[in-house]
């Protein structure tokens, strides 16, 4: 069950071509979905537009639950892109995994820690960026000394811990799901008896993976907004 990956060198950086492919596909799907939802805008929404508006309202609800809309409104597009991209990326690995010459091509891009950590780091950098932009450098720095000065080291650790947990939680959930799916699929092809036996667990686990994928997309977006509110908000 161990799969390799095709890598390529470009400008001194190594690229996992499978990741590149899946990132592109996930981005493309999200883009096409969003375009389909906003292609023929109508006052009375129907079909995909309705769905997209529901997603927007959903993310609005997430933001409103963490900060007031005056500061949170600017993060709506970020939250929307995050939740849609991560959800689609999580879903991609569920129905199939394409392996060519023992190299894994089709999988969830979020089943790679580098990808999820990239997203997590981007979010954390954005929280610091907006904290400085909205509150000024002085107050931003001062926040590290609150509520007590001796908590400063903990505050620094907290930033790294936040980044790590945010990225690795997503990776762990999705990767574990894929590993188990791969195992079950491997069992399914091992023989008729094992195939019949693994069919039901396969079904159950795929359903559960859909649930986990959706929940993880929601959690990632929710935590993004929580960290953002933590940095940007004035309640501390």
């Amino acid at each position: 069950m161990e799969h390799g990956a095709v890598t390529a060198e470009f400008l001194g950086l190594s690229f996992n071509l499978s990741n590149i492919l899946m990132i592109t596909i996930a981005s493309l799907i999200v883009f096409l979905l969003a375009i389909a939802g906003s292609r023929s805008l109508q006052m009375r929404p129907g079909g995909v537009q309705n769905f997209m508006e529901w997603v927007i309202d959903f993310v609005k609800g997430i933001i409103n639950s963490t900060m007031d809309w005056k500061t949170g409104g600017r993060f709506l597009t970020l939250g929307l892109t995050l939740i849609m991209y991560i959800f689609v990326a999580n879903m991609l690995g569920i129905p199939l995994a394409v392996v060519i010459d023992h190299n894994l091509w089709w999988k969830s891009p979020t089943a790679d820690p580098a990808i999820t950590m990239t997203l997590a780091m981007m979010v954390l950098v954005l929280t610091h960026f907006y904290a400085i932009k909205l509150k000024g450098a002085k107050e931003y720095g001062g926040d590290f000394l609150k509520p007590m000065k001796f908590l400063f080291p903990l505050k620094i650790i907290e930033e790294f811990a936040n980044t790590l947990t945010l990225g690795l939680r997503l990776y762990g959930n999705i990767y574990a799901g894929e590993v188990l799916l791969t195992l079950l699929a491997g069992a399914g092809t091992a023989g008729i008896f094992a195939g019949v036996l693994s069919f039901i667990p396969m079904l159950v686990w795929q359903g559960f993976s859909i649930f986990v994928g959706a929940i993880q997309a929601f959690i990632f977006t929710m935590l993004t907004m929580v960290y953002m509110a933590h940095k940007v908000g004035d309640e501390h």
């Binding site: 990956a5 890598t7 470009f10 190594s14 996992n16 592109t24 991209y85």
Partner: peptide, 17 residues
């Protein structure tokens, strides 16, 4: 993950996002 660590992936993901 399946194929070790590739810095290019991170760059690509960031750019793509």
């Amino acid at each position: 993950g399946a194929a070790g660590f590739n810095a290019g992936d991170m760059l690509y993901q960031l750019l793509a996002f």
